[in-house]
């Protein structure tokens, strides 16, 4: 007769092998389930806590002018193409304005010329797409910290939500509410006040072109490409993004990608 200890060990071994076999056989249908998606969110939290604990306010690497990629691949939207946007392009964005509103004491509305008169930062950084490719570009823009300080944040401010002019209707949203195709992104104040987080209006020394997000885009270095929202029209300061579009804080986030895109 086998001892109790032997039996528990067999149960553990067979249970372990069975569990592993189940995971492998069922991986596809598990992927679609909410259980797995919730696990993924817990893992994202670990990654974010671990990275932020280790990185503090450290800067992303900055490169030399000779490192700038001759071809910087545009991705996502190449041209928003709406009547309104085409009108702005025709007028060289002379009547375009960036609005900053939400949990602020002094909502702002700034023209491109006004933005260009503010203190600026230029940085040569590497852009890493979630797909796997990388390119180096030089960006010039206004530090987001200056804009938010000027708008004077309320005590409960937590996120900066950026809404964009482009509409990528293609891919259906995943889980939660159906998200409309309007591109948007969000970052929290820790990233918003990082010295390399800028609202860029120039790339490689020239005004931002349409393919790369004219007239204004976000650069939040230390995160992947989909965070670098192009064609930004407004910055709303909120305490949560759960009520916006699909509720996950960004166009790609609503389609299953991580909100924390540091990896």
């Amino acid at each position: 007769m086998a001892k109790v200890k032997d039996i528990t060990r067999r149960v553990a071994i067979l249970g372990g092998l069975g569990g592993a076999g189940y995971l492998i056989a069922k991986a596809d249908s598990l992927t679609m389930g909410s259980g797995f998606q919730n696990v993924a969110r817990v893992v994202e939290d670990w990654t974010m806590s671990a990275q932020r604990g280790l990185m503090g306010d450290r800067l992303a690497r900055e490169y030399r002018a000779s490192d700038i990629s001759p071809f910087f691949k545009p991705n996502g939207t190449y041209d928003p193409g709406t009547d309104e946007y085409n009108g702005h392009v025709a007028q060289n964005f002379a009547n375009w304005r960036l609005r900053i509103f939400g949990l602020v004491d002094k909502p702002l509305s700034l023209s491109l010329a006004e933005l260009r008169r503010l203190p600026r930062r230029t940085q040569i950084t590497r852009h890493d797409c979630v797909e796997g490719w990388s390119a180096i570009g030089m960006w010039t823009g206004v530090p987001m910290s200056l804009l938010l300080q000027a708008a004077s944040l309320k005590i409960n401010a937590r996120y900066a939500v950026l809404r964009c002019a482009d509409n990528l209707t293609g891919e259906p949203a995943k889980g939660g509410e159906q998200s409309p195709g309007q591109y948007y992104e969000s970052i929290d104040l820790r990233d918003a006040f990082h010295p390399q987080t800028i609202m860029a209006y120039a790339m490689n020394g020239k005004p931002l072109d349409v393919a790369h997000g004219a007239p204004l885009r976000l650069r939040v270095e230390r995160q992947l490409g989909y965070k670098q929202a192009k064609y930004v029209e407004s910055i709303e300061i909120t305490d949560s993004f759960s009520g916006i579009a699909g509720g996950r804080g960004g166009y790609w986030e609503d389609r299953g990608y991580e909100w924390y895109a540091g990896i």
Binding site: Q51, A60, R222, Q223, G262
Partner: peptide, 9 residues
């Protein structure tokens, strides 16, 4: 090394 966050670390 592929993680832009880890690159800053």
């Amino acid at each position: 090394t592929m993680s832009p966050g880890f690159n800053a670390i």
